[in-house]
Structures are given as structure tokens and as C-alpha cells.
Design a protein around this nucleic acid. Sequence first.
DNA 1: ATTGCCTGTCATACG
DNA 2: GCCGTATGACAGGCA
Length: 585
Amino acid sequence: MMEIEMSKMQPSQQDMDLIDILWRQDVDLGAGREVFDFSYRQKEVELRRRREQEEQELQERLQEQEKTLLAQLQLDEETGEFLPRSTPLTHTPEADGGGAGEITQNGAFAEQEADPMSFDECMQLLAETFPLTEPAESAPPCLNTSAPPSTDLMMPADVPAFTQNPLLPGSLDQAWMELLSLPELQCLNMQMQETLDMNAFMKPSTEAPTQNYGQYLPGMDHLGSAQTEVCPPEFTNTYNGSFNTMVSPNMNQLSLNVPDVGAEFGPEEFNELFYPEMEVKVNNPPITSDGGNMVGDPPVNPIDLQSFSPGDFSSGKPDPIVEFQDSDSGLSLDASPHMSSPGKSITQDGSFGFSDSDSEEMEGSPGSMESDYNEIFPLVYLNDGSQTPLSEKSSTEKQEMKLKNPKMEPAEASGHSKPPFTKDKLKKRSEARLSRDEQRAKALQIPFTVDMIINLPVDDFNEMMSKHQLNEAQLALVRDIRRRGKNKVAAQNCRKRKLENIVGLEYELDSLKEEKERLMKEKSERSSNLKEMKQQLSTLYQEVFGMLRDENGKAFSPNEFSLQHTADGTVFLVPRLKKTLVKNI
DNA sequence: ATTGCCTGTCATACG
DNA sequence: GCCGTATGACAGGCA
């Protein structure tokens, strides 16, 4: 019993691997890791417990900070603003340099005598002084309702940066820094980071594109950052919504506020908000000392925090999301409507729409016909209608084309039961082949896409051809393309069938071998039985024959007589000579 | 450099 | 006879 309990408490590495695999599989279903991971849940409970304890300490610390903050301020009775006291209590970050982390911009942690004003009084004062900060929150001195972050975040959008409020500079920064530097919150941040990444990955069609265009589209980073600066409310809402859904319920409001900061401010501001100076973070004693029980956990990386901001992911080190570009998602970038959007457009080298293999091919054969074609017709490229010069085509034909294009290359797309790598290679080769034909078609200025040429039914194909005056070379090329395309698919199907036949024959061969083995065994058994029965019959014969006597009580000679029996079981003693005679007769 | 595999293409046969 | 399909054979790319 104890062992079972222990095994439950400490799942083996194999169990953890299994859980991990199952979780990764179920992520698509929207299930979170915590559903499966026992240790994860346990960790959360432990985290919650520790967090409550830390909250207690933080409350006290924040009270201290607020007191020191207010101690440095004096109320301007004309403007109603708090102004720094003339007494130079503050230290600029530069002055602080890499010094003790306790001393920050406003000297929040300066070791001075605290103002006798209570924290509640301070909060009351703050609420009265800053009407923009929604005093309704009037803030019990609890972090969960967290006056500091929320007040900052609720500044109107036209207040450009957090630091522009001279009255609430460093102490709140410091508080947030400390909050985020706590080991538990580091852990939470990392979990949030993971979840955020996963969330972005799981919602590529709705949120991820708008969030990540900046990184997907080189040269458009400025757009991303601009978007960050003037983050539209729906964007922020979307982001918050997605974030809120992914944050575990037991995460307190403090954690929920974090992405708001990122959404409200750009990543730079976000970074500054939490890390006005790296030195402060690095040298901040509470960070390192409090992280004692999280040995090995790296400190919160500003880049990690940056990923909370929806706008510009491109700055700093590569975001994990970037990996998704290379991941084998099974999505064709060429097929993606986003990629054909004006954002990508007819790009730098005019190679819009060409696959990687196309590029490789072009590079691999610099003097080839394809590259020449590319020089001759740099932009007139036939890409599934997006760039086709099909101006004369009727709308019905275009619609037909749109309907038919999605099912192009069916044998390549889905019909194969080959291993994935084979499929990928097949696709790559197919793209290369298509690109050759496309290059040729482009060279001869054929106004159809290769897909159309190959996949249209005969009647439609003929109709299409009849509507365009093509010269001999164009006609020949079009028919070649169609023939090659169809034959290619046929060859693929043929090979597939051949493989299936081989597999089927192998299976049949195995079955026949098994059957043969079974029959041989059965034959052997029957032969053995027959032999045994013959032996028994011989024994019985001799026994019966030996018991027979003639009138004189003499035994019959086996050379002269034999026993024979009929179907009804009657046994006769037959003289051998006689029998021979009878037989002869 | 060789080899085996994969794929595209051609030629041909068949329905 | 045309078209689509099937298949053997060949060539080229690739690991």
C-alpha cells in the first residue's frame, strides 16, 4: 500500500514521459498540462501555499514602500498633485549604478525612517490625489487588488509611458520587480510563457497571425512595434482574453495584471517597467536570496516577459514561437491565404509564390533555362490565379478555378500511405517539377496555371484552350504539361499500387506459409496415428490368428491362411492359395 | 566513387 | 482516333 502511494507521489521518469506525451497529444483538444500532471498539480498547491506566505511579506514590503514614497512627496495644494520634496532624497538610477538593489529611483527602499502615516492613509491619499486611477479600487492593502499595477495600467492611453508619471516611478517598479523576481512568480511566469507560446501555437488562424506578423514578415518589424505603441483595444482585448483563458484559476489577480502591462505598453516599456536596469535586477539581493528554493531556475528573463506583449516579438532573442516557422506543421505556406496577402506581396526578388525548392532549383542551376526565364519574366508568375494574367477569363471560370485549385495534386497531398519523410520529399520534388513546368509556361507566356492545365476535365480544358489563341509552341507545351502531370499522378498511383500489391503478396505469402506449416503438422500427426493403428491392427491380427485352431486343434499356418473381414464385421479364414486362385479367377 | 532509393518522364499498351 | 490510365524502363537527384 505504501509503495503504491509512493509510486503515486513520485511517478517514475517513464510515467512522466508518458504523461508528457499524452499531454502534448491532448493539447490540441484544449486540455492543459495540469489535468494530467500530478506533480504539476501538487506543485501548484505548494506554490499557492508559498504564495500566500509571500503575499503577506509583500504586503508589508509594499506598505513600507508606499510610506517611503509618500514621505518623499508633498501635496501641491494648487494643482492637487504630489510633487517630490525638494529634499534630495531620490537617487537616480544612474547614481545608483550597480549599487545595492534596495535603493532605486525614488529610494523606495532607502533605509530611512518611515512616515508615521499608515498605509491605509497613504492609499486614501493616493486615491484622492489620482482620480484617474479609479479610486473605487481604493485598495485594501492587499496585493490581489493591487493598487500599484492596476493604477498604473489604468492611466489613460494618451499617457505615453509609465515613467512619465513622476509621482509613481520607482517604488512600483521595484515592487513589481520584486514580485516578479520571487521564485514562485518566476515559475508562474515561465508557465505563463509556456502557455502563451502554446496558446499562440494553438490559435494560428485567429490570434497568432495578427500577433506575430511582425516576426513572420521580415522588414515589417516597424509595423509590429507601431502596432504595439498604438495597440488597438480589440487587439488588447483579444490578447487579454486569450491570456485570461489560459491562466490557471488559482493564479491571482497579480498575475493577470502582468499581460495587461505588456498589452498597454510596448515591449520596451514593458521591459523598462519591470527592469529599469538590468543591474538592479541582477544585483538585487532579494532576487537571489529569495530564489533559494528554486536553485537552478534562471531569473526571469526580460525577453520572456517581453513575449507577453503582443506587438513586436522580433526584438531580442528569437522567440520560441519562431520555431513554429520551421516546425512541421503540415501547413503549406503557399496555400496559406495570409502568405499571399499584400503583406508578403511580390517581394524583393520577384520570386513571389515560389517554393523553397524552386529557389533551390533556381540557385542550383544558375545558367539554366529557368533562371533565364526568371530574368526575362521576373514578375509575370502564374500562381494559382493570384498573379495570373487571366484578365480575359470569365468570372465563372475563375470561380471554377478557385473551386478546383484546393484539390490540386490530390495524390500528393493525401493519397499516399508512405512515411512522412517520403511524403515531404515527394511534395518537394513535386513542387520542383511543377516549378519547371511553371517556368516553362511562364517563359512561353501561357495564360493558365499548371494546375489548371493538368487538372481541368477534358471539356473544360478544351474550352479554355479554345478561348485563347496559342501558338504551336504554347499548345505543345500545354499538352506536354498536361500529359506529364497526369502521367506523374498515374505513376505515383501505379507505384503505390505496386507497393500495396507487394505488401499484399507478402501477407499472402506469410499466410500460405502458416497454412503449409499447419497442414504439414496435421499430416505428420495423421501419419503417426495411421502407423499406430496399423501396428495395433497387426497385433490384433496376430492375436486372433494365433487363437484359431483346426479340427485337430492345430494352429493354422499364416503362410497358408489369412484372415479377412467384411464390411459387416464378419471375419473369414481364407486359404491363401484359394484366395490366390479366387483372385486369379 | 558507389549504391540504393525515390521520383519524374517517356514509350507503349489497353479500355 | 482520342483520352485517360497503367506500367515497364530509364535517368537524375539524393543520402
